[in-house]
Design a protein around this nucleic acid. Structure first.
Lengths: 231, 231
DNA sequence: GCGCCAATTTGCGCCAGCGCAAATCGCCTG
DNA sequence: CAGGCGATTTGCGCTGGCGCAAATTGGCGC
């Protein structure tokens, strides 16, 4: 049963492609479901496929030789990921884990050169995605190098709500389960420090939070915290 | 006076291209010389060109809104850089400064789509470079997030000697002037701490250093320092 | 060869944030 | 609805490394 082109037609990565072209691209793909906390691919494993996330949220984690983990980024719907091979790598540099139940499209790497040359839009879009990632990553280096923990955590939350925020009556909620530990691994600190910060912010009415859940109620003040050292 | 193809024939970026193709690529380029400490392009400036470094070393620096600087990377001979436009950006994300007198090739951005489609090797090579950079940058995030200052400085020195090391009778020397401040801006610390570390290492015979100059005399012990917390 | 200036070194005090440990809390399961 | 477990909170003490400031050094221009 072939995949319906409607599932990718709306994605910016495939913008400007006609129905026949979309079908042609989909012919090489298959759709796969991953349960929450399942690994889509693992760090160091041979890169055999690249992916597009259709539904869900994915956590990309790198582990150091001594077992410490750092969250490289979260992937949202519509994004292409796992493009290691296109970047000239033989293995995945990180592990991708479904933060919630997910649906992804999978292409075997072998079709990349062909797809890439037949659809320059796709190449350009992938360049753009990778470029944006390089940007983000460098911005994080800047943050880690120059900012205090409080600023970094505030920025991380703001980035998350911007990327995946869902309006609720209390404010904007991060749309998937995220623990203090996760936030610590995004910002280079410990879950203890994150917990203390979130508690203090909750006290001041900037956020409300619970188990694996954070809602920003006063984004403006959080921005102040992220930028300055007041709030 | 047209540029001679021999100046780029040896670069891996242009590997596999024939004489006519090299000439064709060079037709759009011009060669420019930059004096030490001159800026090749500036952060936030409109991205009009992309570059290949023919001779010298370039320091890529990002400045925060409040004026703090972080060295994103050093560019070595043969590398393509300033590819902001190919990545879908309108401005340069950082400032590029000649660490020593440099010679670069410059292409106007306008020719990229054409070159890229005519020479897939070039596209792939650029992908590869950008991918490697993304790798490096993420490795730095890991370091900043999980390692102590001593490890980070040791790793930075090792990366520099690997990239640009020049053998001397005392050991391997970093091939361009680099200050304590520069090292601090690469590792997210202060020149004071870097100075203290280098002094201690010199005491222990691991390096010798002077004004804007560092030579590794015992790389093995530096690797130990970078990995562990002994040495 | 002298003087100037930037780069480097080093001492000292302080504090943000980590490590450790213990207590709670919420959810999910049986 | 009790039990169990992982997530979270919070107290406490310690320290790596920063900020400040002053002294010293090495090289370069004149």
């Amino acid at each position: 049963m072939p995949l319906d082109r409607s599932i990718i037609a709306r994605l910016s990565l495939f913008e400007g492609l006609g129905p026949a072209e979309l079908d042609s691209i989909l012919r090489d793909a298959r759709s796969v479901r991953f349960a929450k906390e399942a690994a889509i691919f693992e760090q160091e494993a041979e890169a055999r496929s690249f992916y597009v996330l259709l539904a869900g949220h994915i956590r990309v984690v790198r582990t150091t030789p001594d077992g410490r983990q750092v969250i490289a980024r979260y992937i949202s719907e519509g994004e292409i990921f796992g493009v290691a091979a296109a970047l000239g790598r033989l293995t995945y540099p990180a592990t991708a884990i479904a933060a919630v139940d997910c649906v992804v499209l999978v292409w075997p790497n072998a079709v990349w050169p062909d797809l890439s040359s037949r659809f320059p839009v796709l190449t350009a879009g992938t360049f753009k995605t990778v470029g944006a990632r390089l940007q983000d990553t460098q911005a994080r280096v800047m943050e880690l190098a120059t900012e205090q923990v409080e600023q970094r955590v505030a920025s991380a939350l703001l980035r998350l709500v911007k990327q995946t925020g869902r309006k609720t009556d209390a404010g904007i909620e991060i749309d998937f389960p995220i623990s203090r530990q996760d936030i610590a691994e995004m910002t280079g600190t410990t879950l203890h420090t994150v917990s203390r910060l979130l508690s203090a912010w909750e006290e001041r009415g900037i956020i409300v939070s619970g188990r694996q859940r954070v809602t920003i109620t006063d984004a403006h003040r959080l921005v102040m915290l992220a930028e300055h050292r007041d709030g």
